[in-house]
């Protein structure tokens, strides 16, 4: 019997996302934010004010000009330099927190779904308890207990995102476990952990992959919110939320001091959300609402 096998028509996820209209915008926005975070600080080097914490009280609250594109704040620090340097803190915080939450949520959720029984019951009740606090309040409470600082901020945001990853992974695992190829793996006498690792989890990741960029966006917001309340990274770190908080008192006289960090936060969150929606559409074209 002659067997003609069609050539694989697998396109990479990135290319598919680029073709999808809204995730293309998401990719551009996220790419821009990443670019600024990685390269930006080197581009604004050149004079004394390129240190984000360089104060020059004689030059405070300047408007846009050739030497200070976005002006200066009340302590005479260059606004653009602070924004560009702040991107790094925001992104590191959000990505680190979500990575920790996703990995631990994946493991706990997979075990919970696969084991079932009392293991599942205990894990799910714990998750319910964490989820019964609004995410932001939980992060706030944790920072209040642990104290401020980058590491504690990451832990706080990770803990508040963790239960959603557990849920998403568990429901994916439960769905995949109903599928015949998992029964086939069992019928072949494969050990349970191997079935979980090789047959269940890789096929249950879809929802988690969609969730991740959305959670990064929400982590940016949580981080900024804590920074705004003065509970984020310690002063004078140029974190966007903290910058917003600093500019609050000058809202009516110098509105640009809140506008610029606000726009930065908006761009980052919008980018990650569009990316998340795009990934969902690309992974499952049936859910596509607009292209």
């Amino acid at each position: 019997m002659a067997i003609e096998v069609p050539v694989a028509r697998r396109t990479s996820l990135l290319r598919a996302l680029w073709r999808h209209r809204s995730s293309k915008v998401g990719l551009i926005l996220v790419g821009f934010t990443l670019f600024v975070a990685l390269i930006g600080p080197f581009l604004v080097l050149g004079n004394a004010s390129s240190d984000p914490n360089y104060q020059n009280l004689g030059q405070s609250l300047l408007g846009s000009s050739g030497s200070h594109w976005l002006g200066t704040d009340d302590l005479g620090r260059d606004e653009l330099v602070r924004m560009v340097n702040g991107a790094r803190y925001t992104l590191i915080m959000a990505v680190a927190a979500v990575t920790i939450a996703a990995v631990s949520g994946l493991i706990v959720g997979a075990v919970s779904g696969y084991a079932g029984g009392w293991v599942d019951l205990v894990i799910q009740r714990l998750v319910d308890i964490i989820l019964s606090f609004p995410g932001f309040l939980l992060a706030l409470a944790l920072v209040a207990i642990l104290g401020t600082g980058m590491t504690n901020l990451i832990i706080a945001v990770a803990v508040s995102a963790f239960p959603r990853f557990v849920r998403v992974t568990r429901s994916g695992v439960l769905t995949v476990m109903q599928l015949p190829y998992v029964e086939a793996a069992r019928s072949q006498g494969l050990p349970p952990l191997r079935i979980l690792r090789k047959h269940v989890v890789p096929n249950a990741l879809g929802a988690l992959i969609v969730q991740t960029p959305l959670e990064i966006g929400s982590a940016v917001l949580t981080g900024a919110g804590l920074g705004f309340l003065g509970l984020g990274v310690a002063e004078p770190t140029p974190e966007w939320g903290a910058m917003l908080g600093d500019g609050r008192d000058l809202l009516f006289t110098n509105p640009t001091l809140v506008t610029y960090p606000g726009i930065a936060i908006f761009i980052a969150i919008l980018g990650f959300n569009l990316l998340g929606d795009g990934i969902r559409d690309v992974l499952d074209p049936r859910h596509s609402t607009s292209r």
Binding site: L179, P180, Y181, E183, A184, A185, R186, S187, Q188, G189, K198, H199, N203
Partner: peptide, 16 residues
Amino acid sequence: RRDLQLVFQDPMSSLN
């Protein structure tokens, strides 16, 4: 299980 095997109805969903 080596000795007892199953051939499934739906050949798509029974292959990972």
